[in-house]
């Protein structure tokens, strides 16, 4: 493979583009393929198969050929409400687990660049922040402030927009109160089942890093649930 192709892959990934790398395992030729476009030269006759593999999101060799397709899709975006201690550990864990992290906190003294270097932080209320974040069914929400003023609007948004995962920090009791507030504003009980509350897999730990581990574990396990 040409080093230029590797550089192009890195560049496209940093631009959050979704694409595939097609390689001819016989002669070593490879090229980058963007869905909807026609691949070049000898790859062109496989365009349908490549497109199919891309949508299945499963790397592999095209049947009865020596053409290998590797897919590059964007990682799951995790929006964390609350620039708190747990968030710092979540960022650390996420680095090696293929999650994109965005922190939202209207409280400037929490959401500072000094506390969160190299992280995307939006120093706004959730409703304003969601105006500038692209969300879809691959987006996850983690609320950590346990302040209803900040957490609730984000939860409402995530429920309405069918997020991939929703988790809210707080005890069982806090979660019950949260659910009754959401019921009052018209959400249905079945919709609220989507919220993981108390958040995370029960590992028994109580420290911020242990809670972060339990949250990230739950996110990983949800990712592989079919």
């Amino acid at each position: 493979m040409k080093i230029e192709i590797i550089r192009e892959i890195l560049k496209n990934k940093s631009l959050n583009k979704e694409f595939a790398l097609i390689t001819n395992l016989i002669n070593g030729e490879s090229e980058i393929f963007f869905p909807g476009n026609n691949p070049n030269g000898m790859f062109s006759k496989y365009s349908e198969e490549i497109e199919k593999i891309f949508h299945l999101n499963k790397n592999g060799i095209i049947e009865d050929s020596e053409i290998f397709v590797q897919i590059y899709k964007n990682p799951i975006k995790v929006i964390i409400i609350g620039a708190v201690d747990i968030s710092m550990y979540l960022i650390d864990f996420a680095k090696n687990l293929n999650f994109e992290i965005i922190i939202v906190d209207p409280r400037g003294y929490f959401a500072s660049k000094e506390r969160f270097p190299d992280t995307k932080i939006i120093n706004k209320w959730p409703n304003e922040a969601f105006d500038e974040i692209e969300t879809n069914t691959k987006t996850a929400l983690v609320t950590l402030t346990h302040d209803p003023k900040i957490d609730d609007p984000a939860l409402k948004y995530a429920l309405k927009n069918k997020f991939f995962y929703i988790g809210a920090l707080g005890s069982k009791k806090t979660h019950e109160k949260r659910c009754s507030r959401l019921l009052e504003v018209g959400f249905k009980k079945v919709e609220l089942e989507k919220i993981n509350g108390p958040i995370g897999i029960n590992l028994g730990g109580k420290s911020p890093s242990e809670i972060a581990l339990s949250i990230i574990s739950q996110l990983v396990s949800e990712k592989y649930k079919n």
Binding site: M1, I3, I6, R7, I9, L10, K13, N57, K58, N59, Q70, I71, Y72, P75, N96, L97, N98
Partner: peptide, 25 residues
């Protein structure tokens, strides 16, 4: 399919090549 660590691998490959080393994938 996750390819998170591939970023590290590719960046390192680029470094090795810039240092005039032969590299295979």
């Amino acid at each position: 399919m996750s390819n998170f660590s591939e970023k590290k691998i590719f960046e390192e490959a680029d470094n090795w090549i810039k240092n005039n080393k032969k590299v295979s994938l």
